[in-house]
Structure formats: structure tokens, C-alpha cells
Design a protein around this nucleic acid. Structure first.
Lengths: 214, 214
DNA sequence: GTGCGATGTTACTAGCGGTAACACGAGTCT
DNA sequence: AGACTCGTGTTACCGCTAGTAACATCGCAC
């Protein structure tokens, strides 16, 4: 039958694709985002043109690679976000989940956040701006949806939820990036700091008196 | 005299350097971060090796270029941050200053945030992670300092201020990036949304009832 | 005039992303 | 059986990049 034939081929191609992605994963995790297509092909035991037949170009490969990790991270975040607990608990647990993820696999994190697409040759027309950090965007949209579903924001709440979604994700990301680089405190402390910020402690704190010069 | 001689030379070299930076600026703003050294040299009316004598490598040129814009942006932010007004007003004016800046010159913004260093050839040893988005880091540290100086955070306030500095900057950045791409609302609205978020409106809002399915 | 240092050039290397052209093995049709 | 197609794989190449070496040239002190 024609269908079974096509299915067989497709299955085989999918398996191959997964193998290639795993090889690419190993190389990217070892060499960083500037891993070359040659190196990836060598790691997979094949040569370049096969990679190009499967993924089109380097951007396609990287997008597929990023999608895997992004999906995995988003799954764990969703679990924390949807837990049956009160809001503060959910916020803290989501922050902690994210920080634990980037702490456990900083290389993956670096790859997702700094794809460093600018290759060498023909990808001149690549629009860096539009493609930048899709993980952040996806997390922002996801969070926005959860906020809109579960928090009563009154009229105009949809735009507000989206702004907050992206804003909170950015806060988490930047603070996490700084924390991962300097490790100035424990993970739990940072979680508390950020949750406190979101809980309005900045507005509630008093002005400092006797400060330097003002 | 030896000193005057050296000073003359140095002055001339500095002037040349500035001219080169301005040419690089034009090209980067036109072609995006993946502008080639050849194109920059051509725009400056010279050839590549001179660029390399002045800036070492592409990273050096880009760092010098980024420093200029970063310094300029930080100056305007400092002005908003240090204004003699109450805290909410200062926060809003700082957010607005930042958003106005990225709105006015999105190309500059793209360049600063997505340097896309991965060139082609020999910069394999480049550590992307360490060099990533220095503007965000500098803004974060700057804001942390202001927070620590002007807000009474009690014991352990220094770490808290730094976490908040980086977190707030990240919030501003991610929300601004999203806003710049989609323009879902006016600048003033976004400023109010984010300030509301920092003012604890997330904690104060009620749970939504009768939402979809939960 | 003569050396010397800065400024500039041309011509090159090595490596990148990406592609065209060719080679082989398995299944299908006649 | 033998020709035909099709997916998989290769080698060899293109145009481009960042970066460098070697050579030319100008201005200036001595």
C-alpha cells in the first residue's frame, strides 16, 4: 500500500532527524552556539549536505534544536504555573523552576538566549531582530495567558496581562542571567527577592534618610 | 618637546578613531549588526587593516561602538532616575525615557541588544556568554546603586537592591522589546502597566472566578 | 639627505555557510 | 533479468567572512 510505504519512510526520516538533533545537541553543548555545521555533521558521522537536506539551513537546525529545549522548559514551567496553590506560592515555584533549569544546564540556557546566528556566508538577509530570543517571547505569551485566565484585572486586562507576562519573564531572565554569572546568593534567596519585588515591596519601602548627599 | 609631540599624535589618532566610529555607526545602522568589516572600511573611505590597527578585532570595534550608545542612554536614564520627584514619578519617567529611546532609534537598540558577534572566521574562541548584552548588565548595576542609595531596604539590602536592579531592567527590556515589535498600546500605557506591576498590583488583584475550566 | 614611525595599500590565508554534481543501494515496473 | 527511479551519501566547489603579512608612502626629526 502506498500509505504504509510513506509512513515507513517518514518514520525513518524522523528517526534520522532525531539522531541528527541529538548529535547537534552534543556539539552545541560542547562548542557553544558558534558550533560549525561541519563539526555537527562530523559528530553525527555524516557530511554537511545531509544536514542541509534535513534542516534547510543553519537557522533551521538551530530553530529545531531550540524548539526541543524550549518545549521541555515550558512544560516544567506550566506545571509550576498551574499548580493548585495560592498565587504567591505559584509565582515562587515558577521562579524556582526556571532558575533551577538554567542552573542545571547553563550551556543549554546560553544557547537558547544567545543563538549568535550571524554565520559567515550567505545568511546576510537574516533578520536578527525578528528572530531574537524566541524562548523569551514564548514564555512571555504563555505567562500572559495564565495571568489573564487566573487573575481578575478588570477592563483592558488582556493588554495588561500581556505586558506583565513579558515584563515578568524579562525580570526573571535578567535576574537569572546576573545570578548565574555572579552567584551572589542562594537560589531560594533570589526567588524570595523577586517575589517580594512583584509583591510591591518596592512601593512599600520607605525613603532612605541620611543617604549620601541628597 | 616629547610630550607635546605625543599629545599631537594622540589627538590626531583620537580624531581618526571617532571618524571611524561614526562611519561604523552609519553602516551598522543601515545594514544591521552583521555589517562586515569591509563595508565599514569602505564607508570610512579606507581599507580593513586600518580598522584592525585601531580596534584590534571586530569585537573591539563593536565594543567601542556599543560603549558610545550605552553611555549616552545611561546618561539620559540617570537624569530621569535622579530627578527630584517622588518614587513613582521617577520610576515612570525612567521607564518612559528608556522606551522613548528605543522607539526613536530601534536600529541602535537592536545593535546593542543583539550584537550577533559570531562572525565567520577566527573568532571561535569568543565567549558569547560573558560578553552578552553588556548594556543590560550596566543598566542593572546602575539601577541597583540608585535603589540602594535611595530606598530603605533594611539589612541585606545590598543584595536585594542588586537583584531588583537587574530584575527591573530585565522587565523593562523584555516588555520594551515586545512592545517595539507589536506596538499593542501607547508608550504611556505601557509605562503605567509596568509601574503598576512594580507597585504590587499583581498581588492586590483578586482571583478570577468563572474563568475557562478551572 | 637619511632614518623612522604612522598611515595606507594589495594580496593573501583559513574557515565558514551553502550548493551542484556525481555515486551507490534498494525497491518497482515491464 | 534488466532498466528506472528515488533516497542517501559523497567530493569538490563557490562566495563570503575575519584577520594578517608584506610592501608603499608621507611627514618629520636630526
Amino acid at each position: 500500500m502506498d500509505t504504509t510505504q510513506r509512513t515507513d519512510q517518514q518514520r525513518s526520516a524522523d528517526r534520522r532527524r532525531r539522531e541528527l538533533l541529538e548529535a547537534a545537541d552534543r556539539v552545541v553543548l560542547r562548542d557553544g552556539p558558534q558550533a560549525s555545521m561541519n563539526a555537527i555533521a562530523a559528530e553525527a558521522g555524516i557530511t554537511k549536505p545531509i544536514l542541509y537536506r534535513h534542516f534547510g539551513d543553519k537557522g533551521g537546525l538551530y530553530a529545531a534544536l531550540a524548539k526541543r529545549h524550549t518545549d521541555a522548559l515550558l512544560d516544567s514551567l506550566r506545571a509550576a504555573l498551574d499548580a493548585p496553590a495560592d498565587r504567591r506560592e505559584r509565582v515562587e515555584s515558577t521562579l524556582d523552576t526556571y532558575l533551577a533549569a538554567i542552573e542545571a544546564r547553563p550551556q543549554v540556557y546560553r544557547f537558547l538566549m544567545h543563538p549568535a546566528e550571524g554565520g559567515g556566508g550567505a545568511d546576510q538577509g537574516f533578520d536578527v531582530g525578528k528572530h531574537s530570543a524566541p524562548l523569551l517571547r514564548r514564555m512571555g505569551e504563555e505567562l500572559a495567558q495564565v495571568i489573564e485566565e487566573r487573575v481578575d484585572l478588570g477592563p483592558g486586562g488582556q493588554q495588561l496581562a500581556r505586558a506583565w507576562g513579558h515584563g515578568i519573564v524579562g525580570m526573571m531572565h535578567a535576574a537569572g542571567d546576573w545570578w548565574l554569572g555572579e552567584r551572589p546568593c542562594s537560589r531560594a534567596e533570589l526567588v524570595r527577592f523577586l517575589a517580594d519585588l512583584l509583591w510591591g515591596r518596592l512601593a512599600a519601602a520607605g525613603d532612605r534618610v541620611g543617604g549620601p548627599g541628597f
